[in-house]
Amino acid sequence: MKNLAFIFSLTFVLILGSCSSNKTTAYNKNLSKEITEKNNKTIPLLDRVRRLPGITLRGGIPYFMKSANQISGTATEPLYVLNGFIMGNSFKSLNQLVDSATIKSIDALSGSEAASYGSRTASGVIKITTYQ
Rank of each mutant, 00 (worst) to 15 (best):
N95V: 07
S112P: 05
S116G: 14
N22E: 12
G17E: 01
M87R: 01
G118E: 00
G17Y: 03
I61H: 05
L31C: 00
K104M: 04
S116A: 13
I103N: 08
Y63H: 09
S100E: 03
K2I: 14
G124W: 04
I61W: 00
S9V: 12
K92Q: 08
I106F: 05
I35C: 01
T11N: 05
S112G: 12
E37P: 02
I86N: 12
D107N: 14
N95Y: 11
D47H: 06
D107Y: 13
E113H: 13
T42C: 04
S105N: 15
F64Y: 13
K41E: 11
G60N: 14
V49M: 09
L79K: 05
K23I: 11
V49R: 07
K92A: 14
A101G: 04
F85L: 04
I106L: 07
V49E: 05
L46Q: 09
K92N: 12
S90F: 06
L31Q: 14
Q132R: 12
K41T: 04
N83R: 04
I15T: 13
Y80I: 11
S9Q: 06
M87W: 01
L79P: 07
P53Q: 15
R50I: 02
G124S: 04
D107T: 15
L57A: 09
Y131C: 00
I126Q: 09
S90Q: 07
S100C: 02
T121C: 10
K33W: 06
K66R: 08
Y80D: 08
P62L: 11
V98Y: 07
S105Q: 10
T25W: 11
L97K: 06
T25K: 09
F91V: 10
I71W: 02
G73C: 06
L14C: 14
P44Q: 04
G54W: 05
L97D: 03
I128G: 05
L16I: 09
I35A: 02
I35H: 05
L46A: 11
N39K: 14
L14T: 11
P78F: 02
R58T: 06
L82Q: 03
L46Y: 06
K38C: 06
K127A: 11
L4G: 06
R58K: 13
T56V: 05
V49K: 04
A101Y: 03
K104G: 01
S100K: 02
A75V: 13
N22V: 07
L45E: 06
R58E: 11
F12A: 15
G88H: 09
K33V: 08
M87Y: 02
G84D: 09
I7W: 01
L14V: 12
N3C: 03
L4F: 12
G124T: 06
C19G: 13
R48Q: 15
V125D: 10
I103M: 09
S123N: 15
T102M: 01
N89V: 08
L82C: 01
D107P: 00
I7P: 03
L57G: 07
V81S: 08
L16S: 08
T11G: 10
R50Y: 04
T129M: 11
A5I: 10
N22G: 07
I43M: 02
G88R: 12
